[in-house]
Design a binder for these strands. Structure first.
Lengths: 228, 228
DNA sequence: AGGTGTGAACACTTTCACAGCA
DNA sequence: TGCTGTGAAAGTGTTCACACCT
């Protein structure tokens, strides 16, 4: 899988795949629930069961970043949760701008959980002048013309692209030029960012078409295995 | 990468990875644009450039399903687009129910492109009685109590989960029991489906945390490579 | 005993490189 | 000549299995 669909980061002198990071995020979520439930020790087996993976995978994932467990005993829930937060950068708050105040952008701006997760929506911009000044989930829509100024003034870290496909690349370029550090792209197009800028894509039609493929070929070809 | 995060389908006597299927979706989108632009032949190199991959990958992806090109010449845009549609099951329309008429569910119900892509939103259900009867993007909200009946009556193929996390598994079980064939889950929880039922997850907070990890460790550890 | 941490084996994906055809 | 189709090589990710600690 050379030069895989996902790139990797060097940490502790080994490559850490994006898969491992994704699972770390999941473990973190599970640990939060356990912690809230008063559980204070957890085994790799427990985490694996909740995270729909296996114990060896959990231990391997954690081992990329350090040794957090106690042999014969397991992991301290609070300690591990807290360590994963540091690893993922969740021990600080992140400033986010959403570009595009259409249905999706507005829904995202109104998503209250962002705050609880450590992400502050500091601005929502749109190219449609008639939307400017309106409110969406407590955020006032600004003009996309002010995007560069907003990113600079508010030292925004992340940009969420919720524009139509044809506008996405232009907006991304503008965000990058303004100093953004990462982009979450919902537009159905492969945008380009320079090295050193983070990028994730969420492409709903690709996910849906993955399902229709599974269903279609499940009838035609051999059996099961449709898990994502 | 044994028993990878993605499962695979047997087609033409070889395993086809979910990665390949995802890219097929992307090639399809690119081909549509080319076709609309009047282009009638395309090389693996052209597709690779647009799809941010490489020519060998494109040819390998296609080779899982057949031989569609002409040596020395390339692929006929219309033929290839049409063959990929058959492979992905896009030569028929798909009936979809959205569960959860909150911000996200409503935004999805209003997403006009679904229709153009071959997906018909036949119902939108919610557990909040006060929303029942309201309209969202041309779809009237039904009660979640009627979910089983709706799936049966309208022979719904796919379910989109846009509920809070605690309700997701229950709804998925209900959909599966009612005969749904695939689930696209937006709830931030790992749901379980039986073998033979398609599942894809879109987890926005995991994507965001992937970005914060990249940014955080880019400062700490070695250089670039933050592509998704 | 019981569960972690990890090198090595295994499984899968991508890239290479070139034969083969139009 | 030019570009496809594909075995084989290279590169990654996951699972195994066991030494090691508590």
């Amino acid at each position: 899988m050379a030069r895989s669909p996902f790139a990797s980061q060097r940490v502790r002198d080994t490559r850490v795949s994006e898969y491992a990071v994704r699972r770390l995020s999941l473990y973190h979520r599970i640990l939060r629930v356990m912690e809230r439930g008063g559980q204070d020790v957890v085994s790799s087996d427990d985490l694996a069961r909740e995270g729909r993976t296996n114990a060896a995978q959990v231990r391997k994932d954690l081992s990329y970043f350090g040794t957090f467990g106690k042999r014969g005993r397991g992991y301290d829930v609070t300690v591990l949760r807290s360590r994963i937060e540091e690893i993922l950068g969740l021990d600080k708050r992140w400033r986010v701008v959403i570009v595009g105040a259409g249905r999706l952008g507005s829904a995202l701006a109104s998503y209250a959980d962002f705050g609880r997760l450590g992400f502050d929506i500091v601005a929502l911009v749109d190219s449609d002048g008639s939307k400017v000044g309106q409110e969406r989930g407590g955020v006032t829509v600004s003009s996309v013309a002010d995007l560069t100024a907003i990113v600079g003034r508010d030292t925004v870290d992340l940009g969420i692209i919720a524009t139509p496909a044809p506008e996405a690349q232009r907006v991304v370029d503008q965000l990058v030029a303004a100093g953004i550090k990462g982009v979450l792209n919902f537009a159905p197009v492969k945008v380009k960012v320079p090295d050193g800028i983070g990028l994730r894509n969420v492409d709903i039609s690709i996910e849906l078409e993955g399902l229709t493929f599974d269903i279609t070929s499940a009838g035609a070809a051999a059996g099961p295995g449709l898990e994502s």
